[in-house]
Design a protein around this nucleic acid. Structure first.
Lengths: 220, 220
DNA sequence: TCAAAAGTGTTCGGCTTACACCCATGA
DNA sequence: TCATGGGTGTAAGCCGAACACTTTTGA
């Protein structure tokens, strides 16, 4: 069918164009639980469904720039580390028009970005990962894929983005790991492993108000 | 800037549209060397540059379907396992128009798909990985990223797609690994590791014409 | 003073690495 | 027969998992 011959692997000037959307799984860690930021749609399709924050890529913007714009509008979140997850191109994933989505994830501190959205307070909310409802579009799938990628990254490197405050105890870090990975970790083995990565430095300060007087660490 | 309010994370019906291209790193294993299939562009921009085979995504096709179409037109390659690598959205990556590309890699047997393209024989060719020239667009980057992903996948699983014939010796498999990973492996340790994965079955046949009479294996 | 949490070391098993000899086959 | 490559086992080091007691602190 294609009018593109074997050599014309170029994109011709009149080729089909299509909307590209970015969707972002914004993970946060609060009250010792991993949470995700969702927004409620106020328009069709999927009106009143919760979905991942996202939107169309605009002219002159890259995908990460578009994400930053969307998040900045929603929550004031800025300058966060984004990780690309995957691209979704099924023809029927948007019921009205063709949309290809690229998903990212981001790790933020919820307390840095109070979700008191300017106008519509009931329509953006942090959900515990275990309590995520059925989402609009194929966003449950995107969330699952992002979480897998986050877990992989966490297992391999010491990547926890902005999920913790600047100073934190090893116990807090361990609880973060346990939450994201969904499994219990041995305290002593965890300490050993994390410390021998050499990416944390002790501050010689102790966290006040906690029994035992745990040492505070920061990222190197 | 954005006309998209905080709640309207939907893709609006008049949102900006943009060409989406797919590019594919087709890896093959021939003469004991990892190779990659490149095509030479016959039109501007980047006329006479070698690039990854690819093309625009068409209406009604998913990205993988578009890849299959492109490869089928170029080489007769069909029904191959594709792995998504990444999405590239820099604004200036195509000098003439805005194009967002999604890259994939595929593993094929060169001997199954003789590259005698119907018309323009000098314009499609297998290159040894070490001999890849400067490519058009940002395709050297795409190639590097694909190769990294291939290596990661190979280290973790036993994924070698269609790179080997149906029956192969462990030595052939080892040479494939060494080529892709770019490092030497110990023969005995390699055998142990691969066999204990339990994904190969011995056929009780020996490969003829080779000293030592090596056993032929196949995928389970 | 006591309860709760922090901090620390050792042992075991499995996995990876390094390494050398005998056997089968084609020439 | 011989040269080439195929096939196998063992010992050492490394990493991750399991596990108990002492110290510090807030209440």
């Amino acid at each position: 069918m294609s009018k593109i011959g074997p050599l014309d692997t170029a994109v011709s000037l009149d080729s089909y164009e299509c909307t590209i959307a970015v969707e972002c799984c914004v993970f946060g860690f609060q009250d010792n639980v991993l949470k995700i930021l969702l927004v409620k749609r106020s328009i069709e399709p999927f009106k009143d469904y919760w979905v991942l924050p996202g939107g169309a890529m605009n002219e002159g913007k890259t995908l990460p720039e578009s994400i930053e714009e969307v998040l900045s509008n929603l929550t004031g979140i800025r300058k966060i580390a984004l990780e690309q997850v995957a691209c979704y191109s099924n023809v029927e994933r948007h019921p009205i028009k063709r949309v290809v989505s690229v998903s990212y994830y981001a790790l933020v501190k919820p307390e840095d970005y109070p979700v008191i959205p300017k106008n519509y307070i009931s329509d953006i909310m942090w959900f515990e990962i275990g309590d995520v409802p059925e989402l609009g579009f194929d966003h449950n799938r995107l969330l699952t894929d992002s979480l897998s990628k986050l877990r992989d990254n966490l297992r391999q490197n010491l990547v926890f983005g902005e999920l913790l405050p600047d100073l934190f105890t090893l116990k807090e870090l361990q609880e973060l790991y346990e939450n994201i990975l969904g499994e219990r970790l041995d305290r002593r083995n965890f300490r050993k492993k994390i410390l021998q990565m050499g990416l944390l430095v002790p501050t010689n300060e102790k966290k006040a108000g906690v029994k035992g007087g745990p040492e505070l660490y920061k990222k190197k």
